[in-house]
Simulated assay, not measured.
Amino acid sequence: MSQPSPSVAAEQWFVSRGLPYFVDDIRRTVKGRLGRRPLGAVAAVAALFAAGAGIGTGLGTEDTSSIVLFALLASGVPLVTYAARRLYAGTVVRWTIGRTLSSLGLLVPLVTRALPLLLLFVTFLFINTEVWQVASALDDGVLWVSVVLFALVAIAFLLVRLPEELDQVDDEMTGSRLTAACAGTPLEDEAARVAASYEDADLIATAQVTGLAKANLVLVLLISQALQVLLLSLAMFTFFVVFGMVSIKPDVIRSWVGPDAPTPFVDSLPLLTHELVRVSTFLSAFSGLYFTVYAVSDETYRTQFFGSLMKQLRRAVGVRTVYRCLARENAGQ
């Protein structure tokens, strides 16, 4: 069987690593699917889903927050489906989840840097009367809307800061770094030739990641960070539930939130109460937001977290640079 050409091998390499938008043909296809007409059709379907879910929920409850929550969740179904099936988002998500799960060992030393201060701060809130009163008074719909709001704020913060990490990579893609970045890739041999044939200024200009390709890389960074935040939030939720069941007695909860509390969340576990679950959920979501801000603002943590990820990014940008040079050369023939 004949070996694929370097360009084809690079395209296969991109797709297998969650970078489909680096492939010229795929990027052009996706650009068409992001036009006004197809997106308008998807938005219309999302609005119908939201209206149907809102009306259906409204028939069963008068809780406005629950109606809004289910409407938002329903509207996301066609959007996520379209992105996964037509915009190749599923390829990006699958690779990023696999990579994150395969490197869970790196999460422990990274998280231990943030946990001491986080536990000190949030545990103080956990034993605060006002926090229990506020969280216990929230119905399920408002609570989950609050969790979604925390998540959206964290995502917005990441979307502002993560492109800065990417800009450091493509601005440093000189000849020697290009050769090092492409080592062990399908374009390793071509990288040496390209590095010798092009000036550093030309390579840096070619390496600039913009448009959909930049969105692809930022999405990989975003999902990687979001998964780590989710795991930390789940760990904090577990800690608060166990700590609350052991240390917060029913009489204390009753004195904080009223004579009708606490109410068991599970009949077989009387110490696991609705109030405890609500407070734990609220504070674990807040902890996720705190950790997100800490992760991209603390210099030492950024160095540790982005160390391995930046190696992957440099490799991706390096292969893309050689790929674009080859495409330019083929077009000039």
Rank of each mutant, 00 (worst) to 15 (best):
P38H: 09
P38R: 12
L39S: 10
L39K: 15
G40R: 10
G40C: 07
G40I: 07
A41N: 14
A41Y: 14
V42R: 14
A43M: 13
A43L: 13
A43R: 14
A43N: 13
V45P: 07
V45H: 11
V45M: 13
V45K: 13
A46Y: 11
A46E: 12
A47I: 10
A47S: 13
L48Q: 09
F49V: 00
A50Y: 11
A50M: 14
A51K: 05
G52Q: 11
G52F: 15
A53K: 08
A53Y: 13
A53V: 02
G54F: 12
G54E: 05
I55Q: 09
I55C: 09
I55G: 07
I55P: 01
I55E: 05
G56F: 11
G56A: 13
T57F: 07
T57I: 11
T57G: 10
T57Y: 02
T57E: 12
T57C: 14
L59R: 13
G60V: 11
G60T: 12
G60C: 06
T61C: 04
T61Y: 03
E62R: 15
E62K: 13
E62F: 10
D63F: 06
T64F: 15
T64I: 15
T64M: 15
T64W: 15
S65G: 06
S66V: 05
I67K: 02
I67V: 15
I67H: 09
I67Q: 08
V68S: 06
V68I: 15
V68G: 06
V68C: 05
V68N: 05
L69Q: 05
L69A: 04
F70L: 14
F70M: 14
A71N: 01
A74S: 06
A74Q: 04
A74M: 02
A74W: 04
S75F: 05
S75D: 07
S75I: 01
S75C: 09
G76S: 05
V77S: 01
V77M: 10
P78Y: 00
P78I: 00
L79W: 05
L79M: 08
V80Y: 12
V80H: 07
V80C: 09
T81F: 11
T81N: 07
T81Y: 12
Y82Q: 04
Y82E: 06
Y82P: 04
Y82S: 02
A83T: 05
A83N: 11
A83Y: 07
A83S: 14
A83L: 06
A84K: 01
A84E: 06
A84C: 06
A84F: 10
R85M: 03
R85W: 06
R86V: 10
R86D: 12
R86A: 04
L87C: 00
L87H: 04
L87A: 03
L87I: 00
Y88V: 01
Y88P: 01
G90A: 06
G90T: 01
T91N: 07
T91A: 01
V92S: 01
V92Y: 00
R94K: 09
R94I: 02
W95G: 00
W95Y: 13
T96R: 07
T96A: 11
I97D: 00
I97H: 04
I97W: 08
I97R: 04
G98N: 03
G98Y: 01
G98K: 01
G98R: 02
R99G: 01
R99Y: 10
R99H: 08
R99P: 00
T100Q: 08
T100M: 01
T100R: 04
L101E: 02
L101Q: 02
S102I: 04
